[in-house]
Amino acid sequence: MKKILLFVTVGVIVFGSLLPFLWFLDTSLKTEKEITTIPPVLFPSGSTEFYRSSFERYSLLHYVKNSVIVASSTTFVTLALSIFAGYSLSRLRIRYKGLIMGSLLTVSMFPQISIAGPVWRIMQSLNWLNTYQGLIVPYVTLTLPLGVWITASFFKDLPEEIEDAARVDGCGHFQTLFRIMLPLAGPGIFTAAILIFIYAWNEFFFALLIMTEQGVQTLPVGIALFQGQYTMPWGEIAAASTVATVPIVILVFFFQKKIISGLSAGALKG
């Protein structure tokens, strides 16, 4: 009985969260006529017409490229900084550690709208509007607290004696970090990487603000601007959304085990 209840509850929740995705997946495989039919058709005919048109007429590939560039650069830069910061904050003797960690957390609490103006102004004066770095730098700033917190808590959980052993074996701080600590903190680094990538991949607000030229726009903005003044290309939007979502889903599926061990490791070791 308990099991049935569990399955039903889980089923409802999973179905609920998947519904939007299933809907646009469904829509993306319909034909123009099927979309507007009333009553709606549940099972699409499996046409790939919208995919073709979203790539050909709406240059979807172009947005994908921009998103890949921005999201992976953000992930790379944030991780590089987080690893050094996280290691230092968890292991070296630094004053005001708590204050530093606390203020990092505070930074991540600002509503985006409150910093939108200043960020835009800074990017404008740097002449970075409509450039990749114009988006990557704010993304790094916004994801850094997350990265530092995850990596720091991971480094903290690793036994100190292992680090001592490495130092006695002849490692300096950098060798200890790269040859011993980093491999051991792998699941944590990985979790951070995925979360940062997903954030940068999905981010809409700053992308819309900073990237006003079509050539540099990322997927979320690109898709949002598919609609013209008099047109609402539902099919293409659905197809593009599927294309935008699938890489993330694959990524998470693929590294599911690592992410779960990453998210729970800190809690279990205590």
């Binding site: 036994p159 004696e161 292992i162 001592d164 052993a165 490495a166 006695v168 011993i180 491999p183 051991l184």
Partner: peptide, 14 residues
Amino acid sequence: DIAMVFQSYALYPH
């Protein structure tokens, strides 16, 4: 030029 054996062994798990 010193080697140390630790209480928890401190072997590198990876």
